[in-house]
Amino acid sequence: MVPVDYYVILSAILFAIGVLGVLIRRNALIIFMSIELMLNAANLAIVAFGSVIESFSGQIFVFFVIAVAAAEVAIGLALIVEIFKSKRSIDVDQVSGLKG
């Protein structure tokens, strides 16, 4: 059996890639994908820990996270489409009418 540490390290790497993606990339869709990566890194860690503890609560939590992520996709894509309609761009650097 693969030790749980490996899963946790993998999830930490995925999480870090997600955070970096949000901070570095300027395309709203890619930022959004990076956020999904962060959530899925957390899912991986939760499932790995859950299998060590041998309880179902971890797996149940993951289902909740997946469902919430789906709800966020619905809202997020709608917002991005709206922005694209009025700005013809989803580059977050160009979406900068509000300043101060």
Binding site: V19, F32, I35, L39, A42, A45, E72, V95
Partner: peptide
């Protein structure tokens, strides 16, 4: 208003990533 929504959404989702991890 759209810009406010998008910014709030992206950073809100970003923060919930931290929370879940």
């Amino acid at each position: 208003s759209e810009e406010a929504g998008l910014k709030y959404f992206l950073l809100g989702a970003f923060s919930s990533g931290f929370l879940v991890y």
